[in-house]
Design a protein around this nucleic acid. Structure first.
Lengths: 168, 168
DNA sequence: GTTGACAATCTCAACGTTGAAATAAAAGCA
DNA sequence: TGCTTTTATTTCAACGTTGAGATTGTCAAC
């Protein structure tokens, strides 16, 4: 069988025969990009069903999995995400308005702001996370576990090489 | 060794032991998302060095690899991309102002617009594509070819399952 | 030929992010 | 104590995308 990347590579091979020996990275990286776009669209649709932006869902999961009292500084959320500080400020604004998180000014260092999951926020993410994992499983159901393990192992190596090793 | 996804999965296992048996899709899909974010940032930085948005680069490659006369309708570009018609219109506007493409109204069906690579556009993409492939190779240099082939084969299967099999 | 359904593209306000500048507080040091 | 540097967050205009609607053109049926 063949997918869209096979066609793309085939077109390039026809149009730029001088590049045929350089097309091999596209076979993996091109597919990673396309899979990511498809998965992202699916996850966006999923979170929208629960009234959440993907970025808001990301903040909820980050706060929840760090454990009680479900609190991180704004700066820590920036480092744990792939977005800038301005984006985090906006997300917190929206989520605070929704009652999902609250800002707590730290007495010790009043520059920093602690973002804390509210009880409502914790209940929301505890429900949504379970469904998210079921949705994730559905998105991967065409593969068997051995195949997924192979991909995971290689991509772990790639992430390590790019320094993606810590959350903070 | 361990990466950020190992830590994320470990946190969830601690905080939600009831979900441990459901976390396995994160091992693959979570890593795909993170690798894609890293690669996207790198490619954005690369195209910016050549004065191009990533979306503009995408249009250039799509037109170039379809072969002479390097022409597609706006609708075909929408289908070949992961964005809406409004985004394509804006991209074409910008690229036309830069002299990279030109709009040619079709005589046969005047609703449709043929987008054609200009000579300048073709020269730009022919240079940039070669460098892009070298950059791609650099981004994947921590892996050997067998590992990449494994990932590519599994992701091809996943893309097929999600219907990502044709360009148009 | 006129009508109505369909198709291709463009328009535009709303949205989330970026990135640099502004604000405010803490820390280092004379 | 004063002064500078550094750190944490917020502000804000510019940017690209979305998504619904408007515009314009085609085609089949009558």
């Amino acid at each position: 069988m063949s997918d869209a990347v096979d066609q793309i590579v085939g077109q390039w091979a026809s149009e730029r025969p001088d590049l045929v020996d350089d097309l091999w990275p596209v076979e993996m990286l091109g597919r990673i990009q396309r899979v990511a776009l498809i998965i992202t669209k699916e996850v966006k649709a999923f979170t929208a069903e629960h009234g959440l932006e993907m970025g808001e869902f990301d903040v909820l999961t980050t706060l929840r999995r760090c454990g009680a009292p479900y609190t991180m500084t704004a700066g820590a959320l920036v480092k744990a995400s792939f977005v800038t500080s301005g984006a985090i400020t906006n997300r917190i604004d929206r989520m605070e308005a929704k009652g999902l998180v609250e800002r707590v000014r730290d007495g010790a260092d009043r520059r920093s702001v602690r973002i804390r999951l509210t009880e409502q926020g914790r209940q929301v993410i505890d429900v949504v996370m379970g469904e998210h994992l079921r949705n994730y499983a559905r998105l991967a159901e065409s593969l068997d576990r051995a195949e997924m393990d192979q991909v995971a192992a290689v991509l772990r190596k790639l992430l390590e090489a790019h320094g993606d090793t810590t959350l903070t």
